[in-house]
Design a protein around this nucleic acid. Structure first.
Lengths: 188, 188
DNA sequence: GTCTATATCAGGATAGAC
DNA sequence: GTCTATCCTGATATAGAC
């Protein structure tokens, strides 16, 4: 079966899609390879044919988001007003990967995974530092932390599921800027 | 050993304290009863002597926070300006139970636990509705969700560990009110 | 590529000795 | 109250047939 050649990553993509859905419902630790296999209607061993370990699946699930983070950072560093544009870029990131954020932001398994992958941790650290700016006061640090948590949180919140992406994006950017401006050293 | 009588809940308290620390480091699902036992220097069965199931331990860990939530709700309902005082009360809650919040807010195991305990879910639902007010617009709903996520998030954030409780409390209340006022229908 | 079967291990939970 | 020993279940992962 399956014509020879052109076996592009269909199998892998199906696994990633199924994993993402289950992760967002039950968390990473709460999702077994058996569940992923069941939701695809295949056996466990077939999943292992596509990915050697569960960590490899996690990596594949979060890869697109991190690709976008890399892009955002490059873009931000070239911007004359980094913090202003970064707020909007981060909101776009959350909107684009709403499910992934909800599923992964606070999962302990993912945190361990990130800690063992230095480049990913470095990316996130850089994001935070850019948002904070140099020598931030306590108020600024609290506001930045609140904004970060809020970004992840709105994805998790099922109460907001009925709000469309455009509206959510607009309000998030606006409220996020309100929050950060209220803590800026050089605010107007 | 151990003199007869006066065996007050010392054993249980030690288990709860150890569990809280491990939960906050590794998440609930990532913490086994073996780990709790090891950190106490006892065997697994000794932990089971104090608590019949792991769920019972979870319940004991979050019980103080929920006790305070009940108190806050009663207080809020008697207040002439519920939303104003609720913001401060919730911040106090987070400050008082900083570790528990960090450990439990987003853990899938805890979410399942809450879903199976209706009164706990009802409490949290009531909190949200009070903060939202009647017939909230999308902006208000997003702001409220952001505030809720931010409350949990600042507990999780290790970057804020060095900020003392009083400062954190002040900034959280102030920034929280900024956020909510920016989305109030009847704002000044 | 998918299956069945299995090895290996860890988790929650219980029984019974001390 | 704590221990050792054990049961049962489910998880990751592998081997080898089809």
């Amino acid at each position: 079966m399956g014509r020879p050649g052109a076996p592009r990553g269909q199998g892998r993509d199906r696994v990633v899609a199924a994993a993402l859905e289950l992760f967002s419902e039950r968390g990473v630790s709460g999702t077994s390879l058996q569940m992923i296999a069941d939701s695809l209607g295949v056996g466990k061993a077939s999943v292992y044919y596509q990915f050697k370990t569960k960590d490899d699946i996690i990596q594949a699930v979060i890869a697109p988001a991190f690709e976008q983070i890399r892009h955002i950072l490059a873009e931000t560093e070239a911007s004359p007003a980094p913090q202003e544009t970064l707020v909007a870029s981060l909101v776009d990131l959350v909107i684009a990967h709403r499910e992934v954020m909800a599923a992964l932001s606070y999962d302990p398994a993912v945190r361990r995974f990130l800690e063992s992958h230095e480049e990913a941790s470095a990316l996130i650290l850089k994001l935070g530092q850019t948002l904070l700016g140099p020598a931030p006061a306590a108020r600024r640090r609290v506001a930045t932390s609140m904004f970060g948590a809020a970004l992840s949180g709105v994805g998790v919140d099922p109460n907001l599921a009925d709000i469309d992406d455009a509206t959510l994006r607009r309000e998030l950017i606006d409220l996020g800027r309100t929050l950060l401006h209220a803590s800026a050293a050089n605010q107007i």
